[in-house]
């Protein structure tokens, strides 16, 4: 169990999960666990959500038949002259932007695990992930694209490549020891970012102490430095 501010830590726990992931395996995960995945996952971000949920066009195969893990990602990849794929690095993109799709997404996809950058809001976890028995794993540091790319053993198919382009297409990836990833939200909707933010916030007032505000204020949606902007 990670240090939650109490100064006590049992060290970071490392977990390896077989995909598609089972409810029993998900139930063992706690925020702060370090996770490595084996099996199939697929990428999907705003382009996929818009086409599938916005434009109501079904993917060529049901997503649940591929996997129950949706990776918010565009790979650094190219399509070869022979139709094969060269896949280099694999990195997540920031997930908070996809909040508006979540409700319908879980209903239609059977997804049980989101992987992305930076997590989502506590409300998203409570309203969408928890009721659907899903967890959120964040990529690490956000620049571990080579480690994740190395863990991709095969790219069996790419859906909607012509329709959405390389960056937005649905890349099906067979992965082995895909990680490290960190459990950001567990089945109860606990959030590691939220926990860490609360600790960081203890210091905010001290950092700004004695610094007078500028003469000209700005319009904005928050002026509270303890708030997040996502």
């Amino acid at each position: 169990m990670v240090d939650d501010g109490s100064g006590v830590s049992g060290g970071l726990r490392k977990v390896r999960l077989q995909l598609p992931v089972t409810p029993e395996a998900l139930a063992t995960l706690r925020i702060g666990d370090i996770v490595y995945l084996d099996g199939p996952i697929y990428t999907g971000r705003e382009g996929m959500y818009q086409r599938f949920l916005g434009d109501k066009i079904d993917p060529p195969v049901p997503l649940a038949s591929i996997s129950n893990v949706n990776f918010h990602c565009s790979p650094a990849a190219s399509v070869n002259a022979d139709g094969g794929y060269t896949l280099g690095a694999v990195t997540a993109t920031a997930s908070f932007r996809f909040s508006k799709w979540l409700s319908e997404w879980f209903k239609k996809s059977g997804c049980k695990m989101l992987i992305g950058k930076g997590g989502m809001s506590p409300e998203d976890y409570r309203d969408h992930l928890v009721p659907n028995g899903a967890v959120y794993l964040t990529t690490v540091g956000y620049g571990t694209g080579a480690l994740l790319g190395r863990a991709v053993k095969n790219v069996p198919v790419v859906h909607w490549l012509d329709e959405l382009g390389i960056a937005q297409a649905i890349w099906v990836l067979e992965v082995e020891s895909f990680g490290p990833l960190i459990v950001e939200s567990d089945l109860e909707g606990n959030s590691l970012f939220e926990q860490q933010n609360a600790l960081v916030n203890k210091n905010v007032e001290k950092m700004y102490a004695g610094l007078k505000p500028p003469a000209l204020a700005r319009y904005g949606e928050t002026t509270n430095r303890e708030d997040e902007v996502v």
């Binding site: 970071l12 370090i34 990602c73 690095a89 990195t91 540091g141 571990t144 694209g145 790319g149 490290p180």
Partner: peptide, 29 residues
């Protein structure tokens, strides 16, 4: 910081993997 330390280590591991494999260190190039 325990988590921060882990993340920095993973980043350094990643740089090694990028150079060994000659693949980009991050997919967002």
């Amino acid at each position: 910081g325990e988590l921060s330390h882990f993340v920095l280590e993973a980043m350094l591991d990643n740089y090694d993997a990028a150079e060994e494999d000659r693949r980009p260190m991050c997919a967002d190039t």
